[in-house]
């Protein structure tokens, strides 16, 4: 093998670092949207590498639904501390109160949709001109057509018609006042790429990504953890199962998968052999309509 050859993970990493540096140079007030999941943990790792030996030159912003896994919050605080980054937390609960929004009801009350309000308020509060997100194009088909630099209007809306052509490695981040750019440095990574990179770089993850015992109920074939946010009905059978999480979102809308995979190698093997997509397996909210993501994006969602 040629000694000046980069494997595909090195190539993806280099592309993402290049994007991070373009953000730092082109925007006055960027922010990194941090959810606590593996994709945003990977983003932080890449940002660190992009600006080393300096620190990450923008804050991490957590739009907190209040429905977090405690393990993910602990991990977040530890990571922020270790990286020496600034953390900004804005709570969906506060937005609900201040704007007298209607709290979602039902057994799995997802605040996922309401995050958009908090996000847009936060953008305005801090005058962020760019928000870096961990979306990947392999996640679903609206993402597949979004640019790496995605311009949003003052309502945060994505307009698929007005996307700028994105050629070579040249990114045009120029915007008018009030507009905002969402930048997705890991657009070209797949779920498996992320896992392989986590192994390759020995990136630390919250413990819930690995098999552990948990009290769950079954809902339309998916396992949902019992927590202060999700209570079993009388008709539910509460089971203790060995599970892990494939994505980490809200406790109310993220399903667990049954698994014995306790190590990265085992998790990766399971993901390679699984025949269901990440969103399909673990997101309770995405099944509502096929165009759910497209709609949310157009309304200012990540």
């Amino acid at each position: 093998m040629n000694q000046h050859h980069l494997n595909y993970l090195d190539q993806l990493e280099s592309e993402s670092i290049h994007i991070f540096r373009e953000v730092a140079a082109q925007f006055e007030k960027p922010a990194l949207l941090f959810s606590g999941g593996k994709d945003s943990i990977t983003l932080v790792h890449l940002a660190r590498k992009a600006f080393a030996p300096g620190k990450i030159p923008f804050p991490l912003v957590h739009i907190d639904t209040g429905h977090n896994f405690p393990e993910a919050l602990e991990f977040r605080d530890r990571l922020v501390n270790e990286v020496g980054a600034t953390l900004i937390v804005r709570k969906v609960e506060d937005t609900i109160r201040q704007r007298s929004l209607t709290e979602p009801k039902g057994k799995f009350p997802s605040r996922n949709w309401l995050q958009t309000y908090t996000l847009l308020d936060t953008i305005e509060e801090f005058r962020f001109d760019c928000c870096i997100g961990g979306a990947r194009r392999d996640e679903e088909k609206a993402r597949a057509k979004e640019r790496i630099f995605s311009v949003r209007d003052e309502f945060g809306q994505w307009n698929p018609k007005l996307q700028r052509p994105e050629l070579w490695n040249i990114y045009n981040g120029r915007i008018h006042k009030g507009e905002n750019v969402r930048v997705f440095p890991i657009s070209n990574w797949t779920e498996l790429d992320i896992w392989n990179y986590i192994r390759y770089e020995k990136i630390d993850l919250p413990s819930i990504y690995f098999a552990h015992d948990r009290k769950v109920i079954e809902h339309e074939g998916q396992l949902v953890a019992i927590s202060e946010f999700v209570q079993p009905a009388d008709s539910d059978t509460v089971l203790t199962k060995k599970v892990r999480y494939r994505t980490v979102g809200d406790m109310t809308c993220t399903a667990a998968v049954e698994s014995n995979a306790a190590t990265l190698d085992e998790v990766i093997n399971e993901i390679i052999s699984t025949r269901i997509s990440e969103r399909g397996e673990t997101r309770i909210d995405d099944k509502v309509t096929e165009a759910a993501m497209e709609d949310r994006k157009k309304n200012g969602y990540f």
């Binding site: 088909k141 597949a144 057509k145 698929p160 018609k161 996307q163 165009a291 497209e294 157009k298």
Partner: peptide
């Protein structure tokens, strides 16, 4: 995407 069908447009690259 639905937007493409409704508006009769095609986004340049997926």
């Amino acid at each position: 995407l639905r937007a493409e069908r409704e508006q009769g447009i095609t986004i340049d690259v997926a």
